[in-house]
Design a protein around this nucleic acid. Structure first.
Lengths: 375, 375
DNA sequence: CGGTCCCGTGAATCCAAAA
DNA sequence: TTTTTGGATTCACGGGACC
């Protein structure tokens, strides 16, 4: 049975055996809930969603069954509208969660009109919020009438499929991108304009096109090369364009023909970065592991050598089997370091030092030298 | 019948004939829903609420140097389920709306743990959101484990009692406070510390005391002199202290005896300020610092681009995460610039150049262009 | 008195792989 | 699946000690 056969929303689908059967690099031209319903369980690494904001300006909302919601501006209808928007939101969030891999994540962007409803709904569906991110617009539209604060930001929510997901976060890459300081939850980025703004016959093709810089940061931070990113509200295909540039796979879903057309053309003219440019700073966790004993075997540290902390408050002696001793206690460099401080844990590599010249160097420096020796 | 006679929550109460019968300048020492239930309908100009965030923290968290993070583990922040938190939220929002005057407004502050639920609930109750405001913390706590983005902000919601309320917004005062530019929806303010932090016997009296600068801006923007401000989660009384300074009337509600005591003492020692002294509380506009990564994200420099020094003696390649590579070494533009020259440090902005036309331009020129894009 | 260094701390949903 | 163990991980301020 083809995964593209029409099936009912919410039913279980066999997991994808390989990405090959996914419509990767394609735009599905239909309602997002119906389109997602035909994908197998647990096949997507990230969903990026820019859903309608429920600005109550027109009747563009659809109920999950596909029926059109009557556009009513009257006061008394407000609650009906919220309820309809909630139904719509829960429907696509539920399908998105089904097709996400266990360690997959969801990104949603919205404004105060809808983001609180979306955030509450996704918590209710079982997603686990990891951060809310503020896109601080560098050049927002002013409030012409002077009746409120200038609405100068939008909110994104980053959530994993469940509380115990082991999600992807490229910490070192984000830190590198921010001048070696941790990336914060508030991002200052210009709005989309100039040459980046997609236009057809001189008029902007889509009213809410997102800047590529925003997607660039999202995809670089929370996906790896080759991951599959799905965007259920594809619009002009910003997600697809940036995904292609960064070597991520993408799937778009978009109901409106006119957007599909411009998105296809846009992505076709986007080039993938070359391999060397795409490399990013790797975390220490992914470096080869060095046992402390290797330093002894190679003679970088002699059995009997003295280890001290940076302030020389504690000292320990190295034994032939790479255990260390301090005041009768013995154990690994980590265990004894923790015991010295009375802390529950300790990184012995950075805690303990040895004499060199007039000063002290941390064991971590010796480890770096050892790794260089291997090459 | 006294307005202070106990009546059932949610019942109609006669409107206040004058503010005189309100417990203005008092802290009501009980549950906030019960306390509000004894106030008449339509008697309050503004409710400022800093409810429990329902943080759902796990085990202990330790800093890299070994210290333990002093987490919020108080009983008042514990709720069994989202449903229980929602019930609590709807209850106090409903009472708050009843006692608000028709043109009154509500402010609530929260984090991603609770703010989406609060926002959705207040929309359901009939409030009308006017803005969401981002408090960008100048000095947030870092993410010690490198697992997420630094949680560097909190969110406030400003809502009127209903869609057609004629709410107070002191547009001119806000503009004056912001160097004659419209006040935006993102506010950069430091967290509460130093001498402002209320302490009893040397330890902080409350784990989540808000900075007075935050309340200053809220009250100055959205109330007039003499207005009545009610805070149903009074804590150490920041709202009361700032209200008194600004010549606004205040009512506090706080269940915990230990907080009531410090709040009374704090407000008693607060003096009403004259206009000129108030001005000293305003904070300066922050000049955004540009990380090198911003040039990559906005496409001003492509990953893979070649950087050279002014004499073309050294060259380095830019990567997707804004780190640069030169002969196997990788790091920031500053680190690699320093390594190239064998110098202890280097200003990468002026050292490295890119080709433009027939010549070279320093990165600093691109940085200037980026800053111009922001305005 | 001023400059420097060190230390403490803030609403936090804060690990991952081997055994 | 559960337990154990290795070892990765921090920014901006304020205040006090010290020179």
């Amino acid at each position: 049975m083809s995964v593209f056969e029409r099936v009912k929303t919410g039913a279980r689908r066999a997991p994808a055996e390989a990405d090959a059967i996914l419509p990767v690099g394609k735009i599905l031209e239909e309602d997002c809930v119906a389109a997602m319903a035909r994908l197998p369980d647990a096949c997507i690494d990230m969903v990026f969603a820019d859903p309608p904001y429920n600005l109550q300006l027109g009747g563009d909302l659809f109920r999950p069954e596909g029926g059109r919601v009557d556009a009513v501006d009257d006061d008394w209808d407000k609650f009906d509208t919220f309820a309809a928007y909630d139904d719509f939101t829960r429907a696509w969030l539920k399908e998105a969660r089904r097709i996400l891999k266990p360690n997959g994540t969801l990104w949603v962007i919205g404004s105060y009109h809808n983001i609180f409803r979306v955030g509450a709904a996704l918590q209710d569906e079982g997603y686990w919020i990891l951060n809310d991110i503020i896109w601080r617009k560098a050049n927002p539209m002013p409030n012409f009438r002077g009746t409120r604060f200038t609405n100068a930001h939008e909110t994104l929510i980053w959530a994993s499929r469940s509380e115990n997901s082991r999600y992807t976060f490229n910490y070192r890459a984000m830190k590198a991108l921010n001048d070696e300081l941790q990336m914060r939850s508030d991002w200052v980025l210009p709005i989309c304009g100039g040459g980046e703004r997609v236009k057809t016959q001189g008029v902007k093709a889509h009213p809410t096109q997102k800047p590529e810089s925003l997607l660039y940061r999202v995809l670089l931070a929370c996906t790896n090369k080759g991951d599959v990113v799905l965007d259920p509200f594809f619009g002009t295909g910003t997600t697809g364009a940036v995904a292609r540039r960064l070597g991520r796979q993408w799937i778009g879903i978009e109901r409106e023909k006119r957007y599909v057309k411009v998105a296809r053309e846009r992505i076709a003219s986007t080039l993938e970065l070359d391999e060397s440019a795409m490399r990013t700073m790797q975390s220490k966790r992914s470096q080869p592991k060095v046992p402390f004993g290797a330093l002894i075997e190679t003679g970088m540290i002699e059995p009997g050598a003295l280890l001290v902390d940076s302030k020389r408050r504690w000292k320990a002696q190295v034994r032939a089997d790479a255990s260390v001793e301090m005041g009768g206690q013995q154990g690994s460099i980590h265990q004894i370091g923790a015991a010295a401080q009375g802390a529950p844990s300790c990184n012995g590599w950075t805690f303990w030092h040895v004499s060199e010249g007039n000063g002290l160097i941390p064991l971590d420096t010796l480890r770096q030298r050892y790794i260089l020796m291997l090459d």
